[in-house]
Structures are given as structure tokens and as C-alpha cells.
Amino acid sequence: MKYLLPIVLIISTFSFQKSFSQTSNVEDPILKSIEKHGSSFIKDKDINSVSIGIYKDGEVYTGHYGEIDKGEGNTPNNETIYEIASVTKTMTGYLVARAVLEEKIKLDDAVIIYLEGDFSNLQYNDTPITIKHLLTHTSGLPKFLPLEMNNVFEKFDEHVPEEYIKLERSYNKKQFLADLKNISITEAPGTTYLYSNAGAELIGHVLETIYQKDIDQLLKESFLAENNMFNTAITLDETQKQKLVQGYWMNNETQSPNQLNTLWATGSGAKMTMTDMMQYAALQLNTKNPVVLESQRVLYERGKTFKIGYFWRVWNDKYGRSYNHHGGTSGMQNWLFIFPKYNVGISIMTNQSGPKTPNKLSKTVRKILKNIIEE
């Protein structure tokens, strides 16, 4: 059933943060752009709420529109925690870049050296899957493990959330590694781009093996704590759980369950507020940070335009070189763009998910960027 939000229930809030401190400046042209596009975004009959964040030149701007729960009038805010899904991969990439610079790992290391047991299947004609292949989605591994998960998102029907959570609930790290032994690599790794959450999860195992710490601890030590990202984690505490929203799959009237993250969660398991996302954008614009520079370095190219760094999609156009990543669960979607030429980071999050949502998000980001650079 389609749901059209009554005009009287359309609620919007917006805020301005300078040097990450709250003030009010509603006449600012960037806030006007957020207001314009945020209000427009929730006019879409399938969208319930949206949060938009912009980092530019040391200042943060955020805006929140619509309602989290249909009919409840509860607008998201700077404390709302979203599942950021595959944008998590860029954080995983940061951890790997740190490990590379610390000489704890090499990009050309065969992944099997970090696995116990016989994983001789993770190669093709003596060409092994390496860390670099996992980072660039060129390993030849399937999109998901278990393999049954790959069928869930092919149907795009109303049952996707319940089928996904059922498979996730019955799966764990031990089963993942057992299934990994049965994968057949059909061409030389590094040859073909094939997006793989399984590959990103395998990197989580590698990182925990290297550091002998869990991923949450590694994230805190690497950049969360020093960048005041206190509401970002894979495993939330009890207070944070109260702020975690649920979302809607396509035009479902009931909310989708949140992810359980029964593996390493390095593929799609992080949750965070828009405030923390803006801190993360600021980090990614810090050209003095060697880990950032390494994580954004191009590792794989195909043709003239397709480039990938440490999970980052690297893009070159009239706006200069930029970095972006999309994330989606069965209830939420978000997109993060980093534009170093303009010292700008833009994030847009919504608690609605479906095949058309990514394009809606990216188009809105491009419109906002155009507004910003024309001012």
C-alpha cells in the first residue's frame, strides 16, 4: 500500500554548527539549500524522513525532515542513529590503510596466510586472492555468504526484510569460514569487478587476526575517539539503542528489523548519527592525515572512469577528484560524498530503502553541491 504523508504532518528541523558547536543561522545559503532539497525530498510519496549533513571549511550544517515512524510526527535530529550499511566499508578501508602504514599487512598478501586450515581454493591457477582484491571487489568471491542471501535481493518484493533477517539470524562466523572453503574461483583475482560483501567481511577476520582485537575496539582506537565520534559503533550500548531508528522497505507499512551483524560487520554493520558522519567527512578531508591519503589511493582502474581505492569509489569530473560510497539495508539508505576541491563533505540519510532510493539520494547530493559552489 502506498502512503502519502499529509501536508500537516510534514515536519522539518534544521540546525547550524560552527566548529561543531550549535548555533542558529537560518539565513545561511547552505542551510537554505538543505531546506530546499530536504523539503523537496520528503514530498516523494515513498519517503518518510531524511537527514542531510554538509561539512564545509570547518563548519557543519544539518537538516532533518519528515517523520521516522509513519503517522507519529517524530522528526529525526542530530541524535538519531542510522544504520549506514556499506558506507561502513570505507571505515574498514581506513583500518586496512592504517595496518598497511604500520607494516602489519601488505596489499599483495595472499588472504590465506591469515586463515587457519585449508583454503587452497581461494586462488585461480596459482594466482591467490590478496588483500587488495578484497578492497577493490575483484576477488571473485560472491556478493553474500551464505549463498542463499544472494537470492533475497533479486526479487525486490515485500518479503525481503523478513527473509534477510531469517538468514542472518541463522548464520555466524564459523559457518562463514566453512562456506568459504567451498567457494570456487573461476578466473584470476584482480580481473573483474564484482561487488562482494563477503570479501569485506573476510577483511574483518583478517583485521581481528592481525590486531587480536574486535572491530569496535579497532574503530575506537583508530579514529572514533580522537574525532569525538561517540555515537558510532557496530555494537551499540543500551542508551544508543534507544536512538537507533528502524526503516521501511519500499512501500511496506511495517518497519524492517535492524541488522543483527552476526559476522564481523566490516561490510555493513556500523551505525552513527549525522553529527558523527560530519566528523567523519572532516576526517576524510584532512590531507595531512597519512591514513586518509592511503585509504583514498586508487588501487584498481577499469577504463577511463572506474576507479576504486580502499573501498572508496573514486570519481573525476568537473568537480575534481571526489570519493563516494552508498549504503543500504532493508530499511535505510545513505550516501556519502567527499569533494576535496571544495573542502566539502555531503551525507544524506533516509529510513526508506528500495531499488529507486540510491538514485534519489545521489541526485539530491549533486543538486546541493551545485548550490554550494555557485554561492
Score class of each variant (00 low, 15 high):
Leu4Ala: 02
Val8Gly: 01
Ser12Thr: 06
Ser12Cys: 04
Ser15Gly: 11
Phe20His: 13
Phe20Lys: 12
Gln22Asn: 12
Ser24Met: 09
Asp28Thr: 00
Asp28Gln: 09
Asp28Tyr: 05
Glu35Ala: 13
Lys36Ile: 04
Gly38Trp: 03
Ser40Met: 11
Asp44Gln: 10
Ser49Glu: 07
Val50Ala: 12
Ile54Glu: 01
Gly58Arg: 04
Glu67His: 04
Thr75Trp: 00
Asn77Gln: 01
Asn78Phe: 07
Glu79Asn: 15
Ile81Met: 10
Ala85Thr: 02
Val87Gln: 11
Thr88Met: 05
Leu95Tyr: 04
Leu95Met: 01
Val96Asp: 06
Ala97Phe: 05
Arg98Thr: 13
Leu101Thr: 03
Leu101Ala: 01
Glu102Asp: 14
Ile113Tyr: 05
Asp118Ala: 05
Ser120Thr: 10
Asn125Ala: 13
Pro128Gln: 07
Ile131Gln: 08
Ile131Lys: 10
Lys132Glu: 15
Leu134Cys: 09
Leu134Ser: 06
Thr136Tyr: 03
Gly140Phe: 01
Pro146Lys: 04
Phe153Leu: 15
Pro161Gln: 08
Pro161Glu: 06
Tyr164Cys: 12
Leu167Ala: 03
Arg169Thr: 13
Lys174Arg: 14
Lys174Leu: 14
Leu177Asn: 12
Lys181Trp: 08
Lys181Ser: 14
Ser184Ile: 12
Glu187Gln: 15
Ala188Arg: 15
Ala188Cys: 09
Pro189Ala: 05
Thr191Cys: 07
Thr192Asp: 11
Gly199His: 07
Ile203His: 06
Gln217Trp: 09
Phe223Met: 14
Ala225Met: 08
Ala225Cys: 05
Asn228Asp: 13
Thr239Leu: 13
Lys243Tyr: 06
Asn252Cys: 06
Pro257Lys: 11
Pro257Trp: 03
Asn258Ala: 12
Asn258Tyr: 03
Gln259Asn: 13
Thr262Gly: 04
Gly269Arg: 03
Ala270Arg: 10
Lys271Phe: 06
Lys271Gln: 14
Thr275Gly: 10
Asp276Phe: 00
Tyr280Gly: 05
Tyr280Ala: 11
Ala281Gly: 13
Ala282Ile: 00
Leu285Ala: 04
Asn286Leu: 03
Val291Gly: 03
Val291Lys: 02
Leu293Cys: 08
Arg297Thr: 14
Leu299Phe: 02
Arg302Ile: 01
Arg302Asn: 10
Gly303Trp: 00
Thr305Leu: 07
Lys307Asp: 01
Trp312Ile: 00
Trp315Thr: 11
Asp317Gln: 01
Tyr319Lys: 06
Tyr319Trp: 08
Tyr319Gly: 01
Ser322Ile: 00
Ser322Gly: 01
Gly328Gln: 14
Ser330Gly: 00
Gln333Arg: 08
Gln333Lys: 09
Asn334Lys: 02
Ile338His: 09
Phe339Glu: 08
Phe339Lys: 01
Tyr342Arg: 06
Val344Pro: 05
Ile348Gly: 08
Thr350Lys: 03
Ser353Lys: 08
Ser353Asn: 05
Pro355Arg: 07
Ser362His: 08
Leu369Gln: 10
Lys370Phe: 09
Lys370Val: 06
Asn371Lys: 05
Ile373Asp: 07
Ile373Ala: 04
Glu374Thr: 15
Glu374Gly: 04
Glu375Ala: 11
